Simulated assay, not measured.
Amino acid sequence: MGKLDGKVVLITGCSTGLGKQQAIRLAEEGASLAICARNEEKLHVTKEICEERGAEVLAMQVDIMDYDRLVAFVEATAETFGRIDVLVNNAHTITVPAPFLDKTIEDLDLEMRSSVYAYWHLMQLCFPHMREREGAGTSIINFASEAGVMGDSLYAPYAASKEAVRGLSRVVAREWGQYNIRVNTLCPNGMTDSISGGIDWMPKETREHIEHMFVNNPFGRVGDPYVDVAPVTVFLASDDSRWITGQNIHADGGSLINA
């Protein structure tokens, strides 16, 4: 038996990277999946892999900055599976890392719309399908970032948007506990294919700064999205996390250690 047998998980940003690896891991644990991304061709590859792992999968081409597409995605999920047990807000469009003085308000707007605004919409849209479930209830997992917690250089729009996600999540966790919905944030650290392929063209100084961020931990190695991060998502999605809400969890190999 899998840890997520019988659960329906809606997860965004599954064409590549962390979202893809999480979807695969969730499928292996018995979840039925509703996955989305902008790149339909790559999303279909993820769908096929998850189906090979035994999952029933609904895949839709969705830009999470398009509210109408979010509505259609949630409605299709509810119609297909009859329920939503877990919402994983993973997708985020990140702008090119650069010093704060070089960033624009357009950069900030893009990152806010692709994270906190989209997460806001999806939580509200999924609420009617998640509320007042018996037993362990339902789970919302919103992805935040150590870049916001620590204030990493070159990441002003990203840090600002991810800290907004954390603040929003704490409020919703407090308000929705009465409906047996738990809400937590997850700060991951894992080198995905989309990250490794996306930094090759950057200036040497910027590339070295980013690469250092991924090995700056007590283990001195890069985290693996499937092996190191996705199991934490599985835990937060499972009934084992029934007494955890309003928390920020770092799956980062100890990049950030605090009390």
Rank of each mutant, 00 (worst) to 15 (best):
L43T: 07
V229Q: 04
F235G: 05
N216S: 15
E41F: 11
R221W: 08
A118L: 03
A59Y: 03
E48T: 12
I94N: 04
P157E: 12
I84K: 00
M123C: 15
H92L: 14
S161H: 05
C50V: 09
G13Q: 03
P128R: 02
P225V: 00
G6I: 05
E40T: 13
E56K: 14
A55F: 08
T93H: 10
T245G: 06
H121A: 14
H92S: 13
T80I: 01
E40G: 11
T192N: 02
C126D: 03
E75S: 13
L186K: 11
D224Y: 03
T16C: 05
N180S: 07
K162A: 05
I141G: 08
Q178A: 15
W120L: 14
E211C: 04
R170I: 07
Y158V: 02
R113W: 07
V234Y: 01
M130T: 01
V62S: 06
G190T: 09
G167K: 06
L87E: 09
G190A: 15
S139C: 01
I249N: 00
N258C: 11
T12F: 08
S194R: 05
V86Y: 02
Y155T: 12
R221G: 14
G151Y: 07
K162M: 05
V183Y: 08
Q124W: 03
G30D: 02
L18R: 01
A156I: 05
G246C: 05
V227F: 03
V172T: 12
V96K: 11
L26G: 13
A259E: 04
K7F: 06
K162G: 02
M130Y: 03
S196G: 02
G135P: 09
A136E: 14
A34H: 07
I24D: 00
F219E: 04
I181E: 03
G246V: 10
K7M: 04
A27D: 00
I140K: 05
T80M: 10
G177K: 06
E28P: 03
S15G: 07
E134N: 04
L122M: 15
E134W: 00
M112Y: 12
D240V: 01
D102Q: 13
T104C: 06
N258L: 04
V227M: 10
G135M: 09
G151I: 03
M202A: 06
A27E: 00
V183R: 00
E52H: 01
I64F: 08
T206Q: 12
F81I: 09
S139K: 11
L10R: 05
D228G: 11
T77Y: 01
Y117I: 14
I141T: 07
T93V: 13
A237F: 03
E205T: 01
I257Y: 06
E41Q: 14
T77E: 12
I24G: 03
E51C: 00
R182E: 15
V215N: 10
K20N: 14
C36W: 10
W201F: 11
A76C: 07
N248E: 15
M60R: 12
A156Y: 11
S241L: 02
G223T: 02
A76Q: 13
A159C: 07
G246Q: 01
I84W: 01
R25G: 11
R38P: 06
T233Q: 10
D85G: 11
K204S: 14
S153G: 00
L26Y: 09
I244T: 13
D109E: 15
T192D: 14
D5A: 11
D107V: 08
P231K: 04
T192L: 02
F73C: 12
G17S: 08
T245Y: 06
V234C: 08
H212V: 10
E163I: 09
